[in-house]
Amino acid sequence: MDLREELPSDRPAVRDVHLQAFGDHGLVVADLVDTLRDTITPEDGLSLVAEHDGRVVGHAMFTRSLLDAPRRLVDVQVLSPLAVMPELHKRGLGSALVRHGLGILAQRGVPLVFLEGDPGYYSRFGFAPGDGLGFRKPSLRIPDGAFQAIRLPKHEPWMTGTLVYAEPFWRHDAVGLRDPGAQ
């Protein structure tokens, strides 16, 4: 397996990974990725792929958001989404993508990374519930345990506050859980 930054030629394969991995929610996630990709610059954000036998089989995206801290706004990253082709689950591809991405972001001096996800999975990388670390989630639709953060070496104690997602997360309605029965 090779881990590398996404290339423009990978776009159709990355889209397919998300469509396959997220089932009924795949179209929303794939469209979110297409929009978020335009926000990534060489210095800010990261889109990684896992390639196996010349085929893109996994993807992780880290994009810029803001932490509304008492002292000032702080540039942070959000890990979303992370996907691996279903037939390759439980083989370490997702873990490799997350670890690789966190290593790159730490080298770049990013202080914090946030995500919405399963605490049982993401705790292995050092993610912990955000509220216990002094952070507030950007939406009440995010289950408390799912809102997680990891402090990287450039984090400073004053960096607490509310996560403010980048606009594409709101545009694609990809924040938290919707109640399907709500009107």
Rank of each mutant, 00 (worst) to 15 (best):
R55A: 11
D75M: 09
I40M: 13
F62R: 15
I40D: 02
D38K: 14
T63Y: 01
D31Q: 14
P81C: 03
L66Y: 06
Q77F: 09
V74H: 08
P86E: 03
L36N: 05
L82D: 09
A50I: 00
T39L: 11
T41R: 13
S47M: 12
P70H: 14
H52W: 07
T63I: 14
R37I: 11
L82I: 11
P42Q: 10
D75W: 05
D75L: 03
P81Y: 09
D68R: 09
D38N: 10
S65L: 02
V84E: 00
L36G: 02
A69R: 10
V78T: 07
V76E: 11
H59I: 05
R55I: 12
T39Q: 07
P86H: 02
T41I: 04
G45P: 04
L82N: 05
R55N: 03
G58P: 10
R91L: 08
G54Q: 11
A83Y: 01
P86M: 04
P70F: 14
K90N: 15
D31V: 09
R37C: 10
A50R: 00
P42N: 11
E87Q: 07
K90A: 15
E87L: 01
L67W: 12
E87F: 01
V57T: 14
S65T: 10
S80K: 04
V57M: 09
F62Y: 15
A50N: 07
R37A: 14
I40G: 07
H59D: 02
T35L: 14
T41Y: 01
P81L: 04
D44K: 02
D34K: 06
V49R: 00
S80W: 11
D53K: 15
Q77D: 12
E87M: 05
D34N: 13
V33G: 05
L46G: 02
R71H: 05
R71S: 13
R64K: 05
P81T: 09
I40A: 14
L88F: 04
A60R: 00
T63A: 04
L48A: 05
T39G: 04
V74D: 05
P86R: 02
T39P: 01
L66M: 15
F62K: 04
V74W: 12
V56S: 00
L67N: 09
L32S: 08
S80Y: 07
M61A: 12
M85R: 02
A69P: 07
Q77M: 10
A69I: 03
D75S: 13
K90I: 04
H59K: 09
H89T: 13
D38C: 06
S47V: 14
T39W: 06
I40R: 15
Q77P: 02
V76P: 11
L73H: 04
K90G: 07
F62E: 09
P70G: 14
R64C: 12
P42S: 12
E51W: 01
V49H: 00
V49Q: 00
R64P: 03
V33P: 00
L82S: 02
L82K: 08
V57D: 01
V33D: 07
E51R: 07
E87I: 05
V49P: 00
D44G: 03
D68P: 02
A50L: 06
R37D: 13
L67A: 12
P81E: 04
L36Y: 09
D34P: 07
Q77Y: 05
I40Y: 03
L66A: 10
D53F: 07
V78E: 08
A69K: 15
L66E: 14
D38F: 08
S80F: 08
D44V: 11
